Simulated scan of single mutants.
Amino acid sequence: MSDAQPLPPSDRPIVAFFDVDNTLMKGASVYYVGREAFRRGIISWRDIALFGWHQFRFLAVGENQNHLATAKDRALGLVSGHTEAALIALAEEIYERDFAPKLWPETVELTREHLAKGHEVWLVTATPQLVAQVIADRLGLTGALGTKVQALDGVFTGALDGHVIHGDEKAAAAREVAANLDADLADCWAYSDSSNDIPLLSMVGNRVVVNPDAKLLAHAREKSWTVLPLKRSSIREARKLVKKQARFVKKRAR
């Protein structure tokens, strides 16, 4: 048995857990990975058509059990037989082109606020772990918890390494991180748009529902949780600001 004593409450770390799809970014991140995989000949036209259909449904009605049922097959079909290095390179290439323009400025700013306060910020998502880690790295976050796929000598075998990080599994993965850090869950935070993440949201003391689906919105109102509505215009405005700033920097450089 360890002789280590719990840290005083003021010195214990605080963790903020962020869902990715429709919380940190608009739409399903795995769709953009699938689209790039099609461009590279990794998956077929039929596969990309399915990715497109799931993206449309996800944006229209949010997550449901059908998304959960197909998440495993999509992730495994995407990476099976390919190397870890290839998937990382793919994710790095599409980050600027596909992920960054879809980021919600409000939730990105929240991650930065947590970091500025000395909190750890972890992404927690059903998206493949290596892809989630690229997003976390590019945003300067602490880490990412995603669905892991088994690899042998750096090549994916087509079998899961553990469970799809979704629902109760997402909460379990986050709880393990908090336990390893000796963080008090009552002081921790969670952000999500989906009713499937009620287990994650319920386990922390501070929860914010972002663009919630109907079921989560009803639950949040019943529990008096904070609701953060986002608008498509916020992404457009943020992109215009970035372009304006880029033009200003270019003009000043002259």
Rank of each mutant, 00 (worst) to 15 (best):
G143E: 11
G143F: 12
A144E: 01
L145F: 07
L145R: 06
G146T: 05
G146K: 04
K148L: 09
V149S: 09
V149Y: 00
V149N: 10
V149G: 09
Q150H: 14
A151R: 08
A151L: 04
A151W: 06
A151Y: 08
G154P: 04
G154H: 04
V155C: 09
F156L: 03
F156V: 03
T157D: 00
T157R: 05
G158A: 04
G158S: 02
A159F: 03
A159Q: 08
L160D: 05
L160M: 11
D161E: 11
D161G: 01
D161V: 03
H163C: 07
H163A: 12
H163R: 08
H163F: 08
I165P: 02
H166W: 15
H166F: 15
G167K: 10
G167H: 09
D168P: 11
E169M: 13
E169K: 10
E169F: 12
K170C: 02
K170M: 02
A172V: 03
A174S: 13
A174F: 03
E176W: 11
E176T: 15
V177P: 00
V177F: 01
A179M: 11
N180H: 12
D182G: 12
A183V: 10
A183F: 06
D184S: 00
L185H: 01
D187N: 13
C188T: 02
C188V: 00
C188Y: 00
W189D: 02
A190H: 00
Y191M: 07
Y191K: 05
Y191G: 02
Y191N: 04
S192F: 07
S192V: 05
S192C: 06
S195W: 09
S195E: 08
S195M: 04
N196Q: 08
I198N: 10
I198Q: 09
I198P: 14
P199V: 01
P199T: 03
P199I: 01
L200D: 02
L201F: 07
L201K: 04
S202I: 03
S202V: 01
V204T: 10
R207T: 08
V208F: 08
V209D: 10
V209P: 12
V210K: 06
V210C: 12
N211D: 13
P212D: 15
D213E: 11
D213N: 11
A214K: 14
A214C: 06
K215R: 15
K215D: 15
K215S: 15
L216W: 15
L217H: 13
L217P: 07
H219E: 13
H219G: 05
A220D: 05
A220M: 07
R221T: 02
R221Q: 15
E222K: 14
E222A: 13
E222V: 09
K223H: 14
K223W: 08
K223M: 15
S224H: 14
W225C: 07
W225N: 03
W225Q: 02
T226H: 12
V227M: 00
V227R: 05
P229L: 01
P229R: 06
L230N: 04
L230A: 00
K231E: 13
K231M: 10
K231A: 15
R232T: 09
R232C: 04
R232P: 13
S233N: 07
S233V: 08
I235M: 06
E237F: 10
E237K: 12
A238E: 10
A238G: 11
R239L: 13
R239N: 13
